[in-house]
Design a protein around this nucleic acid. Structure first.
Lengths: 129, 129
DNA sequence: CAGTATCCATTTTGATACTG
DNA sequence: CAGTATCAAAATGGATACTG
């Protein structure tokens, strides 16, 4: 992981390095983002469903993370009613590709964190590109 | 991911829920921890090697993360000299099992984050239990 | 219900200096 | 080199109130 200046001028300057792990962390590496994605894998799609998850995400954080994930192309906001505007959130295929990351995390936890309660296997999430 | 009260009294109260994803995030879910683990996979073992990584982890953060990872049984501190005391850090087998998580993150980044520069495949890390 | 906004406390961080 | 200590700044978090 030596310092190699990146040649790609479109490479986001807010990324700390070009290391794939570091890039993923710059996109998803906080306390809440992957939990929102987990919920999408559990086929939750509405704001209220996310807030009901047992971890209790604060609404301001949720709104922020939904915005960022959409900006990153990982989820898509789909209006299902225009007045008042109501939306549902879906994984894109880019987002659905995080399934292996979540799966690896789940397996590690099942093996190494006593007391975890896994959901039935993650269902195939519904994708909307 | 419904609210199920955990029966295991030894289950850490600081964990937000018994969801495996949430548990992993409570252990590793910040901006720096997985980068330290990545470095260990790249067979870096000494303090100075971690600080040389391109992301530039501050020394106070590094010291804190090494302490926490050791407390979590993910790494082990091995003294290689006693005066002055000098240590090297190694993955335990519990830590080495995070290889699949890192691997999944790397693959996702390679596919979806233009401009990432992957290292040669992660070598088999040296394990010390 | 689906958000937005606000306010404040706590945490995290970055930078730097210091010690043996 | 391998850390520890300090401190200000920034990010994040939690609680709650508010709107259509």
């Amino acid at each position: 992981m030596e310092k190699k200046p990146n040649v790609d001028p479109s490479f986001p300057k807010e990324f700390r390095s070009t290391c794939p792990i570091a890039c993923v962390l710059d996109i998803l590496g906080d306390k809440w983002t992957l939990l929102v994605i987990r919920d999408l894998f559990l086929n939750k799609h509405r704001y209220g469903e996310f807030t009901e998850s047992p971890e209790g995400i604060p609404t301001n954080i949720l709104a922020d993370r939904l915005r960022r994930l959409e900006a990153a192309g990982i989820i898509r906001k789909v209006l299902y009613q225009s007045n008042p505007p109501r939306a549902e959130y879906y994984l894109t295929s880019k987002g659905a590709d995080l399934g292996r990351v979540l799966g690896a995390m789940r397996k590690w936890a099942e093996r190494h964190v006593p007391g975890v309660m896994s959901p039935e296997t993650f269902p195939q999430p519904e994708i909307r590109d």
